[in-house]
Amino acid sequence: MQKSVFYGALAAAVVIGGAVGAATLDDVKARGNLNCGVSTGLVGFAAPDASGNWEGFDVAVCRAVAAAVLGDPQAVEFIPTTGKTRFTALASGEVDMLARNTTWTFSRDTDLKLDFIGVNYYDGQGFMVPKALGVTSAKDLDGATVCIQTGTTTELNLADFFRVNNISYEPVPIETNAEAQQQYLAEACDVYTTDASGLAATRAAFESPGDHVILPEIISKEPLGPVVRHGDNEWGDIVRWTLNALISAEELGITSANVSELAGGTNNPEINRLLGSEGTLGDMIGLDSEWAQRAIMSEGNYGEIFEKNIGENTPVGLARGLNAQYTEGGLIYSPPFR
């Protein structure tokens, strides 16, 4: 871990020139695959399955981008990053994009020289406790030992929440979700705190998920989204509009099942523009006209990806909530394809 930070910093310092100067799109095309930074393993969002294939909600974004740019959703190299190493990995050019439950904040967007290209999950920080403790509110946690992933915004929110409410706690910093799980299950900490979606995903991996409750308080706004380096706007546009294509596809009723059929042409001009049978949107971002088609075909539209990986019928079992389309009362909204 220390090594990777150190090498990351060295790389950031020394190698960056090459990485920033050249266009990421050309690099990716020349390399023939997309390097995508994901989390070290969070069921439903990004985790390798039994045969070692990465799958999940964040992974699907990487696959869609790879399909749009390279024509092959499998041409992705997944690079696991921890909360601490992710930004250095991106800044140093080790990864082309991050799709790794990363919260969009002012200072990350500006001071860290990153570009958040949108939000693919509206989240908030929550607390998970064993049912046996009988805790019903986060304000009852005075004096509790709290496991927390270091290098995340949750660390800062936690400090603020307890300070503002004038209650004390004992933070136990840990590096990855897996370590947090181990400490939490061994009762070395009373509470585990991270994004509520992450808590649901972690709980899904427990032997008896029913013995643990997620407290009602959501103490922060955590808009999670894919991230690219600041300064390469062409690449940023590609990733941004790939995500928007997935979101628009759900709104327009385009699914992985009917996308080939609709690509032949419909009487809805927006579908036609999106799928490339009308207009030259692909050219404008340096791709061919069928880029969005392939992106949607890889893992389906936004709704399909959600339901398949973290929806109510999966072990993670998250409701759409804020992440429903704006037409359904949620916040998921794509600018028009025009």
Binding site: A12, K84, T88, P173, E175
Partner: peptide, 24 residues
């Protein structure tokens, strides 16, 4: 930091580095 002990590497070289983005 492997066991969550916040020494100088964990604070200055860990959380501070991460929150401020001042690697070098």
């Amino acid at each position: 930091i492997a066991v969550g002990y916040l020494d100088i590497t964990g604070t200055l070289g860990g959380i501070t580095l991460n929150q401020t983005g001042r690697e070098l």
